[in-house]
Each structure stands twice: as structure tokens, then as C-alpha cells.
Design a protein around this nucleic acid. Sequence first.
DNA 1: AAAAGTTGTATCAAAATTGTATCATCATCC
DNA 2: GGATGATGATACAATTTTGATACAACTTTT
Lengths: 218, 218
Amino acid sequence: MIKILIVEDEKAILDLIKINLQRVGYQCECANNGKEGADLLAENDYDLVLLDIMLPHINGYELLEYIEPLGIPVIFVTAKGSIKDRVKGLHMGADDYLVKPFSIDELIARVESVLRRYHKGMKVIHVLDIEIDTQTRQVKQNNQIISLTNKEYDLLLYLVQNRNTALYREVLYEKVWEEEWDESRTLDLHIQRLRKKLNWHHEIKTIFKVGYMLEEHV
Amino acid sequence: MIKILIVEDEKAILDLIKINLQRVGYQCECANNGKEGADLLAENDYDLVLLDIMLPHINGYELLEYIEPLGIPVIFVTAKGSIKDRVKGLHMGADDYLVKPFSIDELIARVESVLRRYHKGMKVIHVLDIEIDTQTRQVKQNNQIISLTNKEYDLLLYLVQNRNTALYREVLYEKVWEEEWDESRTLDLHIQRLRKKLNWHHEIKTIFKVGYMLEEHV
DNA sequence: AAAAGTTGTATCAAAATTGTATCATCATCC
DNA sequence: GGATGATGATACAATTTTGATACAACTTTT
């Protein structure tokens, strides 16, 4: 379970962030000012801090100095377009910033991006007859470790995270390889290798003229 | 089946939204004011609420407070870019907003985006005796999977999304094949294949010298 | 530097889709 | 009611897509 600390004095924004992060599966704790934030940080482990700059008592910068040595990523929440703040925050070690007003999509995207960067992905994912440990990138089947290469693992993870969805070749390729699809057969080959290693000849369905889909009957 | 509640007092906009959402396969119910909306919400389950802010009696914000604890996503419909409203809405928990005047494409895109975010888009369209899962591109009839080819699926989806409308050959061909119609019989052949696979010999009507129409008596 | 492992290209085989040709049937208009 | 053109049905051929295998280029490890 991923724990996020939100330090924000505006109740409306605090709730907006909290509700939406909880909705997509994060555990949230809240502090209304810098002091509370520092206290919570002293007592608990968090995977990420969302930090407003304008806070009563202790301001965001001061708190940031306190957080930094803990090695916890921080996303700054700044009032509308104060570029000075953004720059200062980034210089001081914030990992990203969010400018009010922001959209829910943007909030979630930034949180996920930072977490991904810190490799604090979720826990263990169970799908069909395998389990994937996203921390160690290990894949087990019947308690036996299946050794996958990097690309194979990335591809598997994407398939798993989007199981029961028809995935277009281009999308799949672009997400895993992070470059444009150039009509090459690379993706097909990797799919075959996955199928072979996991004995998933039927589980990974090919959708003719479209792409592939990992099927998990629910 | 996905159910959407539309709360909007302007008849024209209400119809515009309703007709277009129904066209792409959502079930819609409507309320002309906040009171009606609250009543419907009390009695039914919805997957999404489209909520106008300016409503007689109970305004959008008040209704939003009522909806929030239900955990149903809300898209705000606001008059011209009043940023204040947008911000307020987002702060209060709306998931997205739509600024009048909006395009149909935008409407559908936002609806789908929010639904996807909430329950990873179980967008299933029910028509006659089949159900189409647009996520997996699977078509079921009496709970049996009907295997369709790519072109067949695309054609079926277009027919379904435009059911009860006479579709000209050229239009149909150009939409599905994405190229000019060249007087070939290809379309006819695919129509026949669909009719056969789905046993839809009467449901897909041919309109002499014009084209085809999927008929769903309502 | 050699070995081992990874990743992508090339090639051929197999499979599925798609479209053409043909003839039969049907609808419409004189 | 017959002529004419449009559509339905069927078979089959052409094309495209995917699977399988081998191997070459490249990286990392030893």
C-alpha cells in the first residue's frame, strides 16, 4: 500500500486531492499546517509528500528542508503561475509541482510519474497463475521464478496492467518501447517469447489486425 | 449497461446530450432541475452524472454535495468559460467539466475518460440480442462469443452506433474502410457475413438503391 | 577478451482475412 | 408481367498477417 502525505491548509483543495488519490488506490494522510506535517513525518513512513508552499507557521520551503534528508519524493503545490516559487522549489529538491487550479488527471498523472521514478510501484500483482513483484521485478509461477529479460518484463507488466483490454499494436509498442512503431515485428517476437516462457499460449490472445490481449476470465 | 443521469434545465442541450450519448450506447435518464435530479438519484444507481451548475431551485453545487458521498463521478456543465465555476466545481469534487458550447466529440471523450478512470471502462453496448464489449472487442450472443473479424467488428460497431438510421453505401464504406467507395461489392459481402454470423437477416435491413440500416424497435 | 545473455532482423511457413468472380434471386419501373 | 438493374449467395483466389526458427548485432558479465 502506498502512503501519501498531503500538507495543505485549504480544506477544499485538501479534500479534492485526498478523495481523488484514495479513489485510485492510494492511502492518504493529511496535515493542515507545516507543524502537523513535520510531526506526521517523524512518526510514519510515506512514499510521497504533496506539499503546499503557503502554509501557516512553518512554510513549505522549511518543511522541504526537513523532508529532503528522508529521501521521500515531494510534489509542490503552488498557487497559480508563480514561476519564482516553482523554480525555487525545483532547485530545493522538489520532484515536481502542481499549479492551482489543476485537473484531476494532472494530479494523478504527476503522482504516478513521480512514484514510478522512485520505483515505489505497488506491491505484488497476482494474475492467472503468476505473481509479479514490481519492487524486485520478479515473476513467479507455481513458486518458481521465471526469468524474464527487461523488455519481456516491461511488456508483461503492461499487458497485466491492461488485462482484458484489446491493445493495439502501436499503443503497446509505444508504451513499452517508448518510441514510434515502425511496422517491425519486434513486438510479435516478444509476445511469442512471453507465451513460451509462461506457457500462456491461450492467455495472450492475438487479435487479428489489431494487436494482443491478455485474457483473465473473471 | 452504463446509466447516465443528465441534470439540465435547457431542453435543447438536454436533448443534444441525451441523443448523442444514447447513440453511442449509454442509457440516459434526465432531470430538468435539481429536485428531480435528487429524486432520481435516491431511487436509482447511476454510473455518471452530467450536472449543469445553473439550475432552478437547487443549484448544481448543492446537488453535488448530495452526490459526492454516493461515490458517483460527476461532470460539470458550465456556461461559457467562467473559470471561477470550474475551479469551484473541481474543488468541490467534480471529476471534469464541460464548457458550453461544446462539441459532441468532446462530450463523448470526456464521458469515456471519466468512466474509464472510474471502473476502467466496462463499456458494453447492448443491442437486440447481442452485447458488444468495446474494451475487448468481443461480441456475445446468448452468452456465447461470436468471433468476428476486424472489418466485421468495425462495421457492426458503426451500424450499432448509428442504429435506426438509413446509412448510405458510400458513407458506410468510407467510415469503416476509411477510403473512397469504388463501386465494389465488398460492403455487401461483409453485410451478408454479419447477417449470417449474428442471424440478423431481418435486423439489418437493406434499403434498395441506398444502403443498409440496423433496425432496433424501441 | 571470451562468454553469456539480450534484443532485433530476416526468412519461410501457416493461417486468417479480405476481395473478386459468378450466378441466382429479388425489387422496381414501365 | 417482363425487363433491368440491384442485391444475395457461394466458391475460390489473392493478399495480408502472424507464428516459428535461425542467426546477427549488440551489451553485459566473467
